[in-house]
Design a protein around this nucleic acid. Structure first.
Lengths: 189, 189, 189, 189
DNA sequence: CATGAATGAGGCTTCATTCAT
DNA sequence: GATGAATGAAGCCTCATTCAT
């Protein structure tokens, strides 16, 4: 039959992620990717015709996993804390989403479709968070005087808070505390 | 911008900002810049030897103005609200800071120095926010059980919250409300 | 072509011809050929080591058949008309010959030999036409004040005349009429 | 002011023509062109963004000149002979037209427009020849029992007749002789 | 200063072809 | 034989940058 594959598709994603996180999208080339994987540049073209296709495929993969995890978070005792913990694990997702404006959406049809799919997944993510905030026990506990979209945006924005000199779990606790009760003392100690 | 064949340095900044906000840093070229300014590409080199120098100069200019405004915010009745209002005005600053990873810091000595200066300004900004949170009346009102760095990061992260279907002032009110009191009802209305 | 995983050599020729006529030699790749044949690209290499070898083999095959037909034409009542009718059937041969300048003759020894053989076949074709024009009844009917090579070239050039809005046979009649008697009235109707 | 130009646009056309005639369109690259002109490859991109744009521009230039010459031919004593003489001068035009199928017409908008323009010029050329064949003294002298399109195609096809062992003027005389009176003796000497 | 011209470096892609199974 | 995988060579193209006027 044929020769044994040297590129594991999972490695492709891993290498893509690492390169982008290390150097940013502008320095993400098939050349660098090939070097990292130890193959010829043209070899990658047997897997992906365009770098945009690879990147968007990877991002969809990442988003899909993230969206799944939101369901897990929803099951937790404190769903909002679950979301924040999710961010601590998927912090790089945020950085990946930042590169979206740099992607040439018109590169190929596949890219166009992928970008569309990413948009849908992003909406889905926001919708799921919206559901968490408006359903069950949360709805009762939560203030309704602020628009849902701002509340959802608020929770998502916390992914940006840097984690300095503490463990992941400490970060989650601190962020959850202020998300829940705010920065100000309200009769709290 | 101008039709004159000479470059007004202010136009350089304006055009730089517009190009980056419109198309992202990856599509920011001296070629496009020259077209926007109506001059020859090589003319820009009489002002800047490297595109990184231009961009970092511009970003320093932007950061310096922002830092000044923080002092104004500190004077307000509700300083934290002042900060949030500042974000609504300088939302693009956030986008500009996003491009930092894309800049080749090693390009020239000047760039290296500029990046260093940006870092200092950024620290200064965080420090000023820290001072606001720990001084005067705020210190008494604010919870101390969460680390200062997380609280500062929290306030800065709110710049990410999207402004959907509302005025700038409504956004400021909503965001300030949850920043202050959190997402949950705590005996509040 | 075939769905079998083995290649029928005849299919190879057919597919080659179709691809070249459709898209020209510059877009004739083993990639496209393999797709058309429903086999893997590398499989073709079990039959031909070089694409030039395949193409020239095919062209030789085509020329050989054409040369044979010239003998048939010579047997006809009006041999020159027979030649012209031959062109109407083998019009693609003309297009195939056009691609000769695009073939890398130095690719392999086989290619060199094939090109040589094609040249010989082409000479043979011209020779056979020359014989027709100078032998038997034709010689008496035909003017001798124009060099033989021009007369042969003239007949061969007619393959270029487009066939617009008429049947193959009408084209043959019209072309033969002017080849025989020229464009001008000479006491003719 | 600026540096002195090293590329004369006329040289660009000349080099383009030479390269294509020597090696065929498939071996016509900006790389080869740059070498021939003694400039860097990228320099050519300051003149033409796409090789298709250069080639089609050149071909339009060539066609336009040819079309003009047809008007001159029409003025001659024997217009058809004028056309044939024109071919002897513009024989390469025929070869250039052969490459049309190899040009990627969809490369850019400019290319699309150029190809359209070429098509129009080609139609114009055929129309002008048609006018010659049907107007004035010619119409009376010429047979009408063969369709105009075949007669026009016939004249254009003669450009293919090889010129072997004779001067240009001898070739013109010979070809004109058979175009006018045909291959056969009709009471002629 | 301003400019148009030229260039090199770097990235993108496509294919013919080779290789191991 | 047939195949899928890998590769190198070759061509395409864009831009930052330098240079001479």
């Amino acid at each position: 039959m044929s020769r044994k594959k040297t590129i594991d598709p999972v490695d492709l994603y891993t290498a893509t992620e690492e390169l982008i996180l290390e150097h940013g999208y502008s320095r993400f080339h098939f050349k660098a990717l090939a070097e990292k994987l130890g193959v010829a540049r043209s070899t990658i073209y047997n897997y992906y015709d365009k770098k945009e296709e690879l990147v968007t495929d990877y991002m969809i993969h990442l988003l899909e996993r993230s969206v799944e995890r939101i369901d897990d978070a929803a099951e937790e005792e404190e769903p909002v804390k679950g979301l924040i913990r999710l961010w601590s694990r998927y912090a790089h997702m945020h950085q990946m989403l930042q590169i979206m404006p740099y992607i040439d959406r018109e590169a190929t049809d596949k890219v166009r479709q992928n970008v569309q799919r990413m948009f849908e997944l992003f909406q889905e993510m926001k919708a799921k968070i919206g559901v968490i905030l408006t359903s069950g026990r949360e709805a009762e506990l939560m203030r309704q005087d602020v628009s849902l979209s701002t509340r959802v945006g608020f929770i998502m924005a916390t992914v940006q808070i840097p984690i300095s000199n503490m463990t992941e779990e400490e970060w989650v606790d601190e962020v959850y505390a202020i998300v829940r009760d705010g920065l100000y003392l309200n009769g709290k100690k």
